[in-house]
Nucleic acid binder design. Structure first.
Lengths: 152, 152
DNA sequence: AACGCTATTGCAAACCACTTGCATCTGTCA
DNA sequence: TGACAGATGCAAGTGGTTTGCAATAGCGTT
């Protein structure tokens, strides 16, 4: 948990520059996001923030998420169930592996895949603007052995 | 445009086997899907089918899509806008490149990427059940030259 | 420190894609 | 041909997200 306040302050400057305001609500939502280590949806963010400010409304959360996304402060993802989930954007690019049993989201990145994507797109006459890569899988139950190398 | 009738017939047998019925509506929707070379959504399918049978209802389309998906006759995709789009499933596995300017969908497949995905998942202790890979890009305007190699 | 302009908020209603309850209709199979 | 269970149409219901509007509150200015 490092640098949450700095992040909020930095974002405040960013907002100001855009002629927007740093309100209590935005500060709160920003904090909730910074403290989250998962990928909460709007309702999840609302619930956590609501605990600190019972006057907050869900629509403000939605509106704030849009502002944050426009400002590039967060990223929005929609996994299989279709609901938008958010994560703060101050991390390196990565894709997601979703555990279809637990719903857990694991992040990963693969320069090789990115390179291949670019190559494929180029061959089709396109340049990639963005992409979406999600793997849906289930945990491999490791063979009951000495925890060395595992088979397939 | 080959084999639409055969496809419909084959699917009829498949339905029967599952204790389901081949209705006029399903026949019609199946035909619309077989004739489609794009990735229409429910409303699009409805519109096309409705032209042939004005008594058809949108809910029947949705219900039919669910049946078709369950039977493995079609695949459902949800691109960025979140609405479900469908395509018949009698083709090889592929992913999609979406032209962000025209909305056109180009299909492609890359065994190399698939292999990398499996490798990455394995390293994280997962086996992939399914995945979603979408590239969003824009057409590269070719340099006005002899169509040889192009710059960046 | 108070002022005013305008962004922002809360609330409720609206939207949109999709689903569902129910009465009716229609494949299917005997 | 008849009966029964599956399928349909319609309208109402869901669930996530957006929006109109009047009230509130940042923030630069005085």
């Amino acid at each position: 948990m490092k640098g949450i306040d700095q992040r909020v302050e930095a974002f405040e400057g960013q907002l100001r520059k855009a002629g927007l305001r740093m309100t209590q609500q935005r500060r709160l939502i920003l904090r909730v996001l910074a403290e989250a280590d998962d990928h909460p949806d709007a309702k999840g963010i609302f619930t956590r923030a609501f605990a600190h400010d019972p006057t907050l409304s869900l629509s403000t959360v939605y509106r704030t998420m849009k502002v944050l996304e426009t400002q590039g402060a967060i990223e929005r993802h929609a996994f299989e169930d279709g609901v938008s989930r958010y994560e703060h954007a101050d991390q390196a690019h990565h894709d997601h592996l979703i555990d279809i049993e637990s719903g857990a989201v694991v992040e990963f990145s693969s320069p090789e895949i990115e390179a291949l994507q670019a190559k494929i797109a180029a061959e089709l006459g396109y340049e990639i603007v963005r992409h979406r890569l999600e793997l849906y899988g289930r945990k491999i139950k490791p063979a009951r052995r000495k925890p060395g190398k595992k088979d397939a």
